[in-house]
């Protein structure tokens, strides 16, 4: 909040000041496949140092929101600023963890080589991989408990191990903003615990974490902020602020039983 106060003192409007300090601020983002929008005119302002869950039903546009924010798919309209600056000048400060199922795990590569991909911006076309780079990659693997698997072919990993390798690749980037797409989808309970421990340690180091999340029951336990979306943005704020009976009803419609809504909104 001090940064925000500083920015307002410098004469910026509160909204502009918020964008200037936000690790990820999105304004008017619309993505459309054909003529049906996947997300429509979404504003989202991520608080610095927060852990935010992007929540919504299937087909609500959660993954699309992340991909469009990062320019992986081209939005119809809207813009992204990262730490108050244009996206493309801040790429080095962003680590993205795609959905595990989005790649072919029979690809001929090893665990260590995947993590080294996180150092692409540093290595570029020609720089040789040095022992310092390998150490960065191995340290990242150690943080997710996968150091013993460095030389394995990625096809031999279980789903949970694959997800940890993806997280290690993001850690190797040494970024300030971490964006994860469904990091807990189809992983075992041990991996889920390991991942959330790493994410919380990132937050403790002052980094910002944003994750697309599916499981309403664990939002409160894992995250401090939530962004509810169903094509249109529905609610934003701390988990308690975002999880009201009205907003859950608005995001999920008839898909949640009244009892569930009561439980979730009271928990918040």
């Amino acid at each position: 909040m001090t940064a925000l106060n500083l920015a307002t003192q410098n004469g910026l409007r509160p909204e502009a000041a918020e964008i200037a300090t936000s690790p990820l601020a999105i304004r008017g983002l619309t993505v459309s496949y054909g003529e049906k929008p996947a997300i429509f005119s979404v504003d989202m302002t991520i608080r610095p140092g927060s852990m935010t869950a992007i929540i919504g039903p299937n087909g609500a546009g959660k993954s699309t929101l992340l991909k469009a924010a990062l320019g992986i798919i081209r939005p119809l309209s809207g813009q992204t600023t990262v730490f108050g600056r244009p996206l493309d000048t801040q790429r080095a400060r962003i680590a993205y963890v795609p959905q595990r199922a989005s790649v072919d795990w029979d690809f001929p590569t090893t665990v260590l080589d995947v993590v080294l991909m996180g150092l692409y911006r540093e290595l570029g076309l020609l720089r040789l991989v040095r022992s310092s780079h390998r150490k960065t990659a191995t340290d990242a693997l150690r943080r997710v408990g996968m150091a013993d698997f460095a030389d394995r072919q990625i096809g031999q990993l279980s789903g949970g191990q694959q997800q940890r390798v993806f997280l290690a690749r993001a850690l190797a980037q040494g970024a300030d903003l971490y964006l994860l797409d469904e990091p807990f989808a189809g992983v075992d309970a041990a991996t889920e615990k390991a991942i959330i421990a790493v994410l919380k340690s990132l937050k403790a180091d002052g980094k910002t974490v944003v994750a697309v999340h599916h499981d309403l029951a664990t939002v409160e336990q894992y995250f401090d902020h939530a962004f509810l979306i169903n094509v249109r943005p529905v609610a934003e704020g701390t988990v308690a602020e975002a999880f009201t009976a009205e907003s859950l009803q608005a995001a999920y419609g008839g898909r949640l039983a009244t009892a569930q809504i009561d439980r979730l909104s009271q928990a918040g």
Partner: peptide, 16 residues
């Protein structure tokens, strides 16, 4: 290097 990265994980490559 960029060609392998794009072949394995084009979304990650774009985000980088």
């Amino acid at each position: 290097r960029p060609m392998s990265l794009v072949a394995f994980d084009s979304d990650f490559a774009a985000a980088s």
